[in-house]
Amino acid sequence: MSVNVLYRTTARAVGGRDGHAETLDGRFKVDLGVPKELGGDDRGNNPEQLFAAGYAACFLGAMKYVANEQKLSLPQETSVQATVGLGPRSDGGFGIEVSLEVSLPGMDHSQADSLLQKTEKVCPYAHATRNNIKTTISLAKN
Rank of each mutant, 00 (worst) to 15 (best):
Q76H: 11
V30N: 02
R43Y: 10
E37H: 10
G39E: 10
P35I: 02
G40Q: 04
G44N: 07
N68G: 14
D41H: 11
Q49W: 00
N46Q: 01
C58P: 13
V34D: 01
L72H: 14
F28A: 13
A57Q: 06
R43D: 06
Q49P: 09
K29N: 10
A82T: 10
K64A: 15
L86G: 00
Y65W: 07
Q81E: 12
A53H: 07
A53D: 05
G33C: 06
Q76P: 01
F59Y: 15
F28D: 00
A52G: 13
M63H: 03
E48M: 12
D31C: 02
G85A: 13
K64N: 13
D42V: 06
F28Q: 04
G39F: 11
G61Q: 06
L60M: 11
E48I: 11
V30G: 03
K71T: 14
V84P: 01
Q81I: 09
G87H: 06
G26E: 02
Q81G: 00
L72P: 09
A56Q: 02
N45Q: 13
G61F: 08
A62Y: 01
A57K: 02
G44A: 09
L32E: 04
E69C: 10
P47E: 02
Y55M: 08
K36Q: 11
D31P: 08
T78M: 06
N45P: 00
D31T: 10
Y65M: 15
E48C: 11
M63R: 03
E37A: 15
Q70M: 10
D31Y: 06
N46I: 05
E48N: 08
G61I: 07
G85Y: 05
L74W: 02
Q76M: 11
G54Q: 08
N46D: 14
R43S: 15
G54D: 09
V80M: 07
L38Y: 04
L74G: 04
G85Q: 14
A67S: 10
F59P: 00
A56N: 05
K36S: 14
T83A: 11
E37S: 14
Q49M: 12
E69N: 14
G85T: 15
